[in-house]
């Protein structure tokens, strides 16, 4: 597994061999390795990456000390990646060129919050009623929520209306279209979760 923390900038399009591709621009890196975890010391292998500058006065003292150990300035986003392939020591800096053009990746982000949504949007139900034949007010209804006197209750976990979005989402099988190493920019084919400016983690499959 290799990975890097990035920030979703927005979408645009590029031409690739005459094909018009929709791409997401991700500002990926520079990331600093702030901790290396090993089997002996922590029970598992992982590295901790940090990304995005933060003012020291806005950082708690314990965190300032943690970043100082890696000989770096405080960062906003800290992510741990298990079984990191690229090795690396404390304080090493990763840039966007850890990924190459054409590579398959998955992208993790926090999806856009949709607020309180009904079952049609939230769970893909098809609604109940028809538009005509005297029916009304049933087109986006959830339908029956269970049987009658047996079991006399609604089963746990039944899909209903409620808060949607704003949760961790991983999209697999995306492709790297372009890497601009000097600007730390990765262009990803298609869309990635989250709104512009939100943090994403790009991982190898």
């Amino acid at each position: 597994m290799k990975g890097i923390i990035g920030k979703k900038v927005g979408m645009t399009s590029v031409f690739d061999n005459g094909k018009h591709l929709a791409v997401t621009v991700v500002q990926a890196g520079p990331c600093v390795i702030t901790q290396v975890k090993t089997e002996e010391t922590d029970g598992y292998n992982a590295v901790q990456l940090a990304f995005d500058e933060k003012k020291e006065k806005n950082t708690t003292k314990p965190l300032v000390g943690h970043f100082k150990k890696a000989n770096t300035t405080p960062k906003r986003k800290v992510v741990e990646i298990r079984n990191f392939d690229l090795g690396g020591n404390l304080g090493d800096v990763l840039s966007a060129d850890v990924f190459s053009v054409g590579e398959k990746i998955s992208v993790v982000g926090i999806s856009k919050g949709k607020g309180f949504q009904g079952v049609v949007k939230r769970h893909g139900f098809s609604g109940v009623g028809m538009g005509s034949h005297g029916q009304h007010d049933r087109q986006r209804a959830p339908g029956s929520v269970g049987a009658s006197s047996d079991p006399s209750r609604v089963l746990k976990g039944l899909r209903m209306a409620g808060r949607m979005g704003g949760e961790r989402v991983k999209v697999a099988n995306l492709k790297v279209v372009q890497v601009l190493a000097d600007k730390n920019i990765i262009l990803v084919k298609g869309a990635v979760p989250g709104h512009n400016g939100s943090y994403v983690v790009i991982e190898s499959l």
Partner: peptide, 13 residues
């Protein structure tokens, strides 16, 4: 338009 996207597309195009 976002200035980073503009920079990126300016180099690519």
């Amino acid at each position: 338009m976002n200035h980073i996207i503009k920079e990126v597309t300016d180099t690519l195009f």
